[in-house]
């Protein structure tokens, strides 16, 4: 082959490729946001009250505990959104799990010692979440229902079922082990935070290092490409919605543990927070991009805004405004990055 024709095939970087540092910066933007917020609250707290916001382990723990539930929902949502879907049912799946975990623990308490009774409750809470998760996956992969509609339907079904099971009220739990899981500490760190941290590591591994994670990205970029590569897209989709529901189930179980009561409305306000966390964390709602560490940062951004505004004594309704503004800025940054990055 002649020399000039081969040189035509050299990848030229002047055209579309952005500087590598720009790409890395964009991936870190949720963490930059977080740092900016912490600095702002720190300055404000010192100027107005003469106290530190950041250097308070009480604040740090409160924010971490505060972030746990929306983060758990957001972890599963990250996978679903990367694959180009959405799961609107997670909030009430969480409520359903919280209520059923409470009922099952109470039922087991009458015949079992406290520790196994708690384990029965946890198993029941996680297992019940798989039902709406399986139905979501079936509707979307087999019946080709759009994810937005299918999971919106399941939002209603899970909501109604959870309130029916709870008979419209909360279901208190008296199991001491359960209370310790929700409010205890290990090495000075709240147990719910430790459980969530372990789960974050697992999800980070699953998304970044497994075939399942790799195929999730591929489906989000092009379902056709995934199909032609021999990936079982239907099965992958069903697993994604099961995973999302399982995350919501874990959120529900930890809710019951923390408040020693299951409530149908446990996750009601968390759906939008969890989707916001995913988007702030750098995922695109069009699918194909996003990371677990980004989602963790996104969840912390929301938790810091909500907690911080209360801390500096701003009226709580400003939280909604602040979170909304951060979401819009995140999407604008994402779009700008796409333009610079030359992605379609």
């Amino acid at each position: 082959m002649s020399a000039p024709s081969t040189s035509l095939l050299r990848a030229n970087r002047h055209s579309k490729a952005p500087h590598p540092w720009l790409v890395r910066l964009a991936a870190l933007r949720a963490w930059l946001f977080l740092a900016l917020l912490l600095v702002t609250f720190e300055v404000w707290a010192r100027a107005s009250y003469g106290v530190s916001f950041v250097l308070s382990s009480y604040n740090a723990q409160s924010i971490a505990v505060f972030a746990v539930a929306p983060l758990l929902l957001a972890l599963g949502e990250t996978f679903v959104i990367i694959a180009g879907g959405i799961d609107l049912s997670v909030g009430f799946v969480m409520g359903l799990s919280a209520v059923l975990a409470a009922h099952a623990t109470n039922a087991a308490d009458s015949s079992l010692p406290p520790l196994p009774a708690m384990l029965v409750g946890i198993a029941a809470g996680l297992a019940v979440a798989l039902v709406p998760g399986a139905i979501n996956g079936w509707l979307i992969s087999k019946l080709k229902v759009p994810p937005f509609i299918g999971t919106l339907g399941m939002f209603g079904v899970a909501r109604g079922t959870a309130f029916l099971l709870a008979k419209g009220t909360t279901v208190p739990v008296t199991n001491d082990w359960f209370a310790a899981l929700g409010n205890g500490r290990l090495l000075g760190i709240p147990v719910v935070v430790l459980v969530t941290a372990v789960f974050v590591l697992f999800m980070h591994y699953l998304l970044g290092q497994s075939r399942f994670g790799q195929h999730t990205y591929a489906v989000g970029a092009s379902e056709q490409a995934a199909l032609r590569a021999g990936i079982g897209v239907g099965r992958l989709t069903r697993r994604l919605y099961l995973l999302s529901a399982l995350c919501a189930g874990l959120g529900g179980v930890l809710y019951t543990a923390r408040f020693t009561a299951g409530a149908a409305q446990a996750g009601e306000p968390l759906l939008l927070d969890s989707i916001a966390a995913v988007v702030i964390g750098g995922a695109s709602l069009f699918g194909g991009s996003g990371t677990i560490l980004g989602t963790v940062a996104g969840s912390l951004v929301i938790a810091v805004i909500q907690y911080g505004l209360v801390f500096i004594d701003v009226e709580p309704f400003w939280q909604f405004v602040a979170v909304g503004v951060v979401i819009i800025i995140s999407v604008l940054v994402d779009q700008t990055q796409r333009k610079l990055g030359g992605e379609r």
């Binding site: 990205y217 591929a218 970029a221 490409a225 021999g230 992605e343």
Partner: peptide, 16 residues
């Protein structure tokens, strides 16, 4: 039929 968000290597090995 490429996944635009994946590297060359990841596309070559997609599904395997």
């Amino acid at each position: 039929a490429l996944a635009d968000n994946l590297s060359i290597g990841a596309n070559i090995f997609l599904g395997r």
